[in-house]
């Protein structure tokens, strides 16, 4: 039985995960062509050994060279990383106090608070991003409110800027930050803080010397959980960002659907993955460490 249980999912993942990935790699080495499918060479076994040799001979790294020569791609990668880093920090700044408040809340509130954090996660991601389109628009609710308060005399332009993208990422990824931070803060014994204060620590230094180190595993996990998907984000920059918001997920999408340049889109994908491998490996090592500590 264990054989069958291994073989079925194994085969499934080989065919629908590994093979597609190899196809992307292969197409990233091909050339753009005006044909169906829009790339060349295509593998044709009927031509025998010679055809296979020609096929491999025609593959090259031209698309990758092209990516390094065109500013657009470099800028898009860098600005994706920049946007992801800034929004991860912002998410931490917003999420940490919430997680801290939850961990300090009376025991009987905690399940309800947990539920309130998870609930938005079950509602559609797209809808949560969409909700901000109406709020941030020039004649939107936020501007109307600020004008009414008299804080501003002219509507602020927020939608279609990077600020809107940051707000969108912080809002949609907030549960991913709150939950791991809460999990590590919840396990902390509050008497540790009392002990620190008894021993002469001020509140602030007790927070820095006791709470922060204990929260570290949760903070690191939360940061990775926000950062990794944020780099490749597509929906948020295309709904809230403007034409000057460069993010690689959007570039890949447009390369594929608008320019129909599949080889370049594939090369963009492979480089994105290479960039993400570092944080992914670090994240998994961190998780493994955390598991070992638990045991």
């Amino acid at each position: 039985m264990k054989r069958i249980f291994t073989a079925v999912p194994y085969l499934w993942l080989l065919v629908l995960f590994l093979v597609p990935f190899l196809i992307v790699m292969k197409i990233s080495l091909s050339d753009y062509a005006i044909s169906i499918p829009p790339y060349t060479p295509t593998l044709d076994f009927s031509g025998g050994w010679q055809a296979v040799r020609d096929f491999f001979g025609a593959l090259d790294f031209e698309n990758y060279v092209f990516l390094t020569e065109d500013d657009l791609y470099w800028k898009a990668y860098l600005s994706s990383l920049k946007i992801a880093i800034i929004s991860t920090i912002l998410t931490l700044l917003v999420g940490f106090p919430i997680a801290y408040g939850m961990a300090r809340a009376p025991d009987e509130w905690r399940p309800a608070l947990m539920m309130l954090v998870i609930l938005p996660f079950w509602t559609s991601f797209l809808i949560r991003v969409y909700a901000w389109m109406g709020i941030l628009a020039n004649e939107g609710i936020l501007n109307q409110f600020l004008l009414w308060l008299g804080l501003i005399s002219e509507p602020l332009t927020i939608i279609n800027t990077n600020i809107a993208v940051y707000i969108g990422i912080v809002y949609t990824y907030l549960p991913f930050m709150i939950l791991p931070v809460y999990a590590s803060l919840e396990r902390m014994d509050p008497s540790l803080l009392e002990a620190a204060e008894d021993l002469g620590c001020s509140r602030v230094s007790a927070f820095w010397n006791v709470t922060v180190p204990l929260a570290r595993p949760g903070v690191i996990a939360g940061c990775f959980l926000v950062f990794i998907p944020a780099v490749g984000e597509f929906v948020i920059p295309s709904l809230l960002g403007g034409s000057q918001t460069l993010m690689i997920g959007k570039v890949l999408w447009e390369e594929f659907f608008s320019n129909r340049d599949w080889p370049v889109a594939s090369a963009v994908a492979i480089i994105l993955l290479l960039i993400l491998i570092i944080p992914i490996v670090l994240f998994q090592r961190q998780e493994q460490l955390a598991r070992e500590v638990d045991q």
Partner: peptide, 16 residues
């Protein structure tokens, strides 16, 4: 697949 950017998963499956 848990950490793969969605655009890449989508692209690779379409190409398959």
């Amino acid at each position: 697949p848990l950490v793969m950017p969605e655009v890449i998963t989508g692209l690779s499956l379409l190409l398959l």
